[in-house]
């Protein structure tokens, strides 16, 4: 029963565990770069979740071929494409701010930064 549930919903469970890994890195790690890495893992988990929602049993990739009837849902794919690029922009901006913080204070430790 439980094994069957895990086997059927494996992508959802992987995305849940990736989300937990990302959140752990963001909460526990004190280095700002590692927090940004955690943010990226977290956003990857959300993309994996959306792509898994789009899947249909036996569906073809959403590119029209004359003899295929069942296609995978194309909408989440477009949304994830948007999301990946926004995550790229977010990461680059966060990295720039990290560089600025390091130049100003000489440390990336978030605990030390809180004391300043």
């Amino acid at each position: 029963m439980i094994l069957e549930f895990i086997a059927v919903n494996f992508p959802y469970l992987v995305s849940v565990s990736l989300l937990l890994v990302g959140l752990y890195a963001m909460i526990v790690r004190r280095n700002l770069i590692k927090k940004i890495m955690g943010l990226n893992i977290l956003s990857t988990s959300v993309f994996l979740y959306l792509i898994s929602v789009a899947y249909k049993e036996g569906g073809a990739p959403p590119i029209r071929v004359s003899e295929v009837e069942v296609y995978v849902n194309p909408l989440p794919h477009a949304l994830v494409l948007t999301g990946i690029v926004v995550a790229l922009a977010l990461t680059s901006f966060a990295l720039v701010l990290t560089i600025k913080i390091y130049k100003e204070y000489g440390t990336l430790d978030s605990d030390k930064l809180m004391d300043l």
């Binding site: 959802y12 899947y55 049993e57 909408l75």
Partner: peptide, 17 residues
């Protein structure tokens, strides 16, 4: 996972397809 009758596949996506 992979259920073709899930609500996500029944709203606006069939029209796109």
């Amino acid at each position: 996972f992979g259920d073709p009758e899930a609500p996500a596949h029944r709203h606006v996506a069939p029209r796109y397809i």
